[in-house]
Simulated scan of single mutants.
Amino acid sequence: MTTDPTVQPRRRAAHLGPERRRPQVLDAALAIAVDQGIGAVTMAAVADRMAVTRPVVYACFGDRVELLRELVAREERRIIDGVLEATPARAVDAGEAVFVDGFQALLRVVAANPDSWRLAYGNPDPDVATSFGHGRALVLSRCTELLRPTLRAWGTVDAETKLPVLVELWISAGESAVRSLLSGAGTWTPDTLGAFVGAAVYRALRDT
């Protein structure tokens, strides 16, 4: 039997084992979710994206539900870790530079893992929104801890009453900055956008 030399046999995927391949499967699922929406993430689509057979994907995750659950959990952890990194303990009587530095640090984190943030902020799927909502609650708590003593140090009138509203303003400004950076509109960089938004938020909070 003559073999056609122009026909190349399908290359088998390197045998990495499920534990080592799981991050690759999640990376492929994330790329599909960002490009086409969470509904497009199927076991078959992930296998095609990775150029492997479906059993390779099923060896890593039992089904689509497990895959999506692990994907969202991983990206949520990345986002939360990034936010906590960008909001360390700081001087109580915070000046404008503190807010600028914080927003710049946050946006650098976003720029380092943009697809994680696109999944959270660009996906209408209710399951995704619910999961990332837990992370937002943690961020609210963190920012409340930071802002409460700062308002007192500034001598803000009725600080405790205003605190929840001001925290929401702070976080909403951060979310808007994230969306602006991810959109690619204009010539913003993490540092220039962080400087602009950080200064604006500082003035808004300080003048209340």
Rank of each mutant, 00 (worst) to 15 (best):
M1H: 07
M1T: 11
T2V: 09
Q8I: 10
P9I: 11
R10N: 00
A13T: 08
A14P: 00
E19M: 04
R21E: 09
P23V: 14
D27F: 03
A28P: 03
L30S: 09
D35M: 06
D35N: 11
G39V: 10
V46C: 05
V46T: 08
A47T: 10
A47F: 04
D48V: 05
M50D: 03
V52N: 02
R54C: 04
V56R: 07
V57L: 03
Y58T: 15
Y58D: 12
C60P: 03
D63F: 10
D63V: 15
V65Y: 03
L67M: 12
A73F: 01
A73H: 02
R74C: 01
E76F: 01
R78I: 15
G82I: 13
L84F: 15
A86G: 07
P88C: 14
A89T: 13
R90E: 11
V92D: 14
V92M: 06
E96T: 15
E96S: 15
F99M: 15
F99R: 07
V110Y: 03
A112E: 15
R118I: 12
R118F: 10
Y121T: 05
P124D: 15
G133R: 04
R136P: 00
A137H: 03
R142D: 06
R142C: 06
C143T: 14
C143K: 11
T144V: 05
T144Y: 02
T144K: 10
L146S: 09
L146D: 08
T150D: 06
A153H: 05
A153D: 07
P164W: 09
P164F: 09
V167T: 12
L169N: 04
L169K: 04
W170D: 13
W170G: 02
W170K: 08
S172H: 06
A177T: 09
R179E: 14
L181S: 11
G186R: 07
G186Q: 09
P190A: 15
T192W: 02
G198A: 09
A199D: 13
Y202D: 06
A204M: 12
L205H: 01
R206V: 06
R206E: 12
